[in-house]
Design a protein around this nucleic acid. Structure first.
Lengths: 327, 327
DNA sequence: GAGGCGGTGGCAATCGGTTGCCATGAGTTG
DNA sequence: CAACTCATGGCAACCGATTGCCACCGCCTC
């Protein structure tokens, strides 16, 4: 397509200076005389010069690219995280390289390995890789782990403990005295945490708890969970995440169980679909977009250890005062 | 982090050959003696050598990266497209560079301009840029345009005409004789097409049509549209897309209007939330994932002109036989 | 035995920037 | 006025691959 784009050498010739001066005019503002710099910029603009990011990356080793790994782009949770990360990255002059693991450990490792040498940092937002694979990556590039904790790898997690506390307390206040946790994927670190904190919160209030699962964290998973749920119907359910909760909610209704009159349902994440199911889902809202932003900030600044983001409970209509099941 | 990764020179020294031979052993299989190549590969593996994509890209000009531009990552439509594009790209040994325009023309142009020199091709899936800005980009790199048509820029669009025909016909068959189109953003090419084909389809069946809008293609937009809709309630509504349709549907219900008993609602795209609203949304399904894949294939093969993807109507419960409004 | 040829491997230029180091000259200081 | 400092610009060596061109070798052919 057309001819080759101009280089610093073209600009240098046109401006009557050395290439190094052109380079500095752009990358090291104070280093050249203001007037010279101005002239160079003008000439460059006339010629339509733009720095070639590849060529710039080679000697410096900095590519201004960040790899963002998600386990499933179609999950709305990641949409929010990506949005946050993308905007923060753009502001910092970075660009995001997206890797969709498609729920496959192998695919993810492979893609990441290919991408690694070309990026300045890695954000693992939902990864299916093993702890050791994560450490291997983290050894090569600054890495931030989202919603998971691996020793020696900095991360940003939601305050699962507090979130669970809020959810359990909310159900308790509505008169529920027993609840069932619908678990997410076994490999999910967040799932383990949520179940653990749910137990703790329940113990504090002397609630009885049960756990079913694991299930895939999708509406279909929720449907599957409901089959099990129906065998011994609880009055309150907390699901690993919103998608699962939505699946449960829909399947319960399809089976003639009324939500929230007979069963209260609580989710996690507060993604968009949670607002539009009927009834709208009560859920623990995590600042996903902020998390994406924070991840970029952290990965660019070689962060400390671990960061915890606040959560809040969004009370909607999928939870209600307990009414004993008629039977 | 640790020391620098090994280069072809390290491998060359260890294997007792020249760097060029190492390079060829990887990039030009038949060019070196099989035994030599095997030895080089072994040595390379021992040293943990991986080709540096940046360095490789500099002389060849090929980066194995594709830019994917979306107008709003949080829109589930793009999740599907990205998924399709990502997997096709990965299979072809390419990596996706994601640009989220965040609905901003300026931001988009700026980001794309920065990214352009570093990619081998561009996929514009939902762009807010002007035709001329698109042409400028297309002149610099192979470009594929999704759901929009700009002369001389190859693209992949849904069969809006047939989709609209199906939707209108469906409503006609249910007894509706007038319908209202809730328009999407003015800048959207697809919106223009859909409205046009709706009119044509309606004319064929002698239906009366009305158009309101434009509205932002989100549930909030749908809410706004409903205010207008309520002033003169139609029996059937077709919205620019699912998100808008969902907004309309929810707002109608909130106003005490029954869907589908009083008003039938049809969307476009068949994204996930369409399945979970109550009632589930009747919508024109577009093969979004396939579109993502096709875009990658096309951009890598310098495609022909224009491709049209088939659509189908997914009949759910937001449409029903017309019952005259009681009033 | 000379000339030719295909298969291999090496040399060195090249891609387009970045940056350490040096030269120059103007300005400052004692 | 000499010595010194500092601002500024140029030279040239990288960064790590790719690739055109050439040299060498063994072998075949006439």
């Amino acid at each position: 397509m057309s001819e080759k784009p101009p280089t610093i050498y073209d600009v240098a010739r046109a401006a009557g200076v050395a290439a190094s001066t052109v380079s500095r005019a752009f990358s090291r503002p104070g280093r050249v005389n203001a007037a010279t710099a101005e002239r160079i910029r003008r000439v460059a603009a006339e010629l339509g010069y733009r720095v070639n990011p590849l060529a710039a990356a080679l000697p410096t080793g900095r590519t201004n690219m960040l790899a963002l790994v998600v386990s499933d782009v179609t999950n709305p949770v990641y949409g929010e995280i990506i949005r946050g990360a993308e905007s923060a990255a753009a502001e910092a002059g970075y660009v995001l390289l997206l890797i969709d693991a498609q729920e496959s450990d192998r695919l993810e490792r492979h893609s990441l390995e290919r991408a690694l040498p070309g990026v300045d940092g890695v954000i693992l937002a939902g990864t299916r890789m093993s702890d050791s694979a994560i450490r291997v990556a983290a050894k090569q590039r600054p890495t931030i782990l989202l919603n998971r904790v691996v020793t020696d790898v900095p991360g940003i997690v939601h305050d699962n403990a507090y979130g669970m506390h809020l959810a359990v307390r909310h159900l308790y206040d509505l008169g529920h005295r027993a609840l069932t946790y619908v678990a997410g994927p076994e490999a999910s670190w967040a799932d383990g945490m949520r179940w653990r904190y749910l137990r703790e919160a329940a113990a504090d209030l002397s609630l009885r708890v049960r756990r079913i699962g694991p299930f895939t964290p999708t509406p279909e998973g929720g449907r599957a969970a409901t089959a099990e749920l129906l065998r011994e119907l609880p009055t309150a359910v907390i699901a690993y995440n919103d998608l699962l909760a939505i699946g449960v909610l829909l399947a319960l209704q399809a089976s003639g169980v009324c939500v929230p009159a007979e069963v209260s349902v609580v989710g996690f994440d507060n993604v968009f679909p949670a607002r539009i199911v009927t009834p709208p889902l009560t859920t623990v809202a995590a600042p996903l977009r902020a998390q994406g932003r924070a991840a970029v900030t952290a990965v660019l600044s070689r962060p400390g250890r671990l960061m915890t983001l606040p959560v809040r409970l969004v009370e909607r209509d999928s939870t209600a005062r307990r009414r004993p099941h008629r039977r």
